[in-house]
Amino acid sequence: MNDTLKLILQLMIPGLCLGCVYGLNGIGAALLYKGSHTINNAQGAVVGFGALLGYSLQNRGLGLISSTIIATIACFFVGVLLQVGVISQIEKKAPIYVVIATLALSIVITNANYLIVGSYTYDSAVILINVSKYLHIDSVNVDILWSNIVAIAVSFIAMVSVHFFLNKTKFGSAMRAAAMDPFAAESCGISVVKTRAVTWGIMSALGALGGCLTGPLFGVSAGIGIAAGAKGNTGAVLGGYGNMYGAIIGGMIIGIVETIFGYIYSPYQTAFTNALFLIFILLLPHGIMNEKAIEEG
């Protein structure tokens, strides 16, 4: 019994941690789709950028917490800039071009990352609590990394604050209104330009936060976010595209399922995860939360 519990803890906690990071990216994808009916392929590159920014701030002598906060805020503005400078220009012509433009953005940002920091994997500071890296659970004799637990906790805090921002603040309501009907919102005095920019900002900030949180686990490198960004989309599809809460749940499921696949039969780990995505988008397009964004027609 204890062995089973141990195994579950060993697999679930890191899986959930990854899942939370995917979930953070998924929230961005959901908000973006609700807000402007586009998808973002550059999310992974922004995650990598955020993680690298966090690392270089640590190198400048800042602590883990302050560097994470600064990187997150900086990436908020990066997202706003991307939307105002690039995406809004293209959105006007046809939303379909955004898909390819964000692919191009992803190539540009990732290669710029490579050029600036090189291809090495760097070490990020490890989270210590009571001078120990591990939380030891005596009853099942298992060590759990504080980095995992902190990442899960911080992600939850971020998710809850996004929820409150959208539901309890004036600007959040404006964002939801603009997402529902841009024309009506515009006529009520809501600046759709502003709400879309903030959507991109939130998306990039959440991605950067996720990147900084995985830094202590994997090390920081230029390509760290590519998989996480893509799996944010996967999670969003699983949960029902366009539903924020669905994206969180979907992301977590992907994280855990991926880890379990790795345990059961590792050669097909990536193929299984991608196939799961394919099954959902082709056969169960409404996802877990029964969101009808993927319409027929």
Binding site: Y33, H37, T38, I39, P95, I96, V99, A230, N233, T234, V237, Y241, Y268, T270, A271, N274, A275, F277, L278, I281, L282, L283, P285, I294, E295, E296, G297
Partner: peptide, 23 residues
């Protein structure tokens, strides 16, 4: 199955097809 998807989701689905085949 892909013929009923709207273009954004078709983009996602075809990307996934590419990934699965490559895997």
């Amino acid at each position: 199955p892909a013929a009923k998807l709207k273009y954004h989701f078709l983009a996602l689905a075809t990307t996934a097809v590419g990934e699965v085949v490559n895997n």
